Computed example of a mutant assay.
Amino acid sequence: MVTTLWVARNRAERRQGLLGTDHLDGALWIERCSSVHTVGMRYAIDVAFVGAAGRVRDVVTMVPGRVGLPRPLARAVVEAPAGELRRLGVRPGTVLAAQQLAACG
């Protein structure tokens, strides 16, 4: 499974996330993150909550204007346009690493 992956590493990048974008080709890995919202988003996104050792704990699709529930055991999230994570075969139990997903960042 390979897609273009952007990594949000610092506080400003994590806070910005996908806000203000019209589309994303690929996915965004947000480190040190356990909850997301889509307030101000212009499109629906898939969100994978990633726990210790890169294991996906949950995958949800969020429409614009929603606030997601925190996932206390999540250490990172992967955000992608709605349908992209399913296309890549990402589901609970999948083990992810940024290197697996990406060619960019």
Rank of each mutant, 00 (worst) to 15 (best):
T94Q: 09
V60I: 15
G105L: 08
G51W: 06
L96K: 10
G93Q: 01
L19T: 15
P81V: 09
V47A: 06
R91Q: 06
V90K: 04
A52K: 11
A97R: 14
V60N: 08
D22L: 12
H23M: 14
A8W: 11
H23F: 15
R14Q: 15
A27N: 05
L73Q: 07
P64G: 05
L24C: 05
G83F: 03
T61F: 03
G17I: 12
E79W: 04
P70R: 06
M62H: 12
A8P: 13
C33I: 01
R71K: 01
A48G: 12
A102T: 12
Q16N: 06
W29N: 04
L96S: 09
D58K: 14
R86M: 01
R42I: 10
V36M: 00
E84S: 13
V60R: 15
P92H: 01
V77G: 06
R11V: 14
G65R: 09
T4N: 09
R57G: 10
P81E: 12
R15G: 11
D46Y: 12
A103G: 13
R55K: 15
L88D: 01
G93S: 02
L69V: 04
S34V: 00
G51S: 09
V95W: 14
V77R: 03
V47S: 07
A74F: 00
M41R: 01
S34P: 00
A44R: 13
A44F: 11
C104P: 04
D58A: 14
G65C: 10
R75A: 02
L69C: 02
G83Q: 04
T21M: 15
L28T: 02
V2S: 13
D46K: 08
P64T: 05
L88I: 03
D25K: 05
G89F: 06
G89Q: 10
I30L: 05
R11H: 12
V63W: 03
V7K: 07
A103P: 03
M62W: 14
E13C: 14
V56N: 02
V77S: 04
P72R: 00
S35L: 04
P81Y: 07
G105C: 12
G40S: 08
R14T: 13
R42D: 13
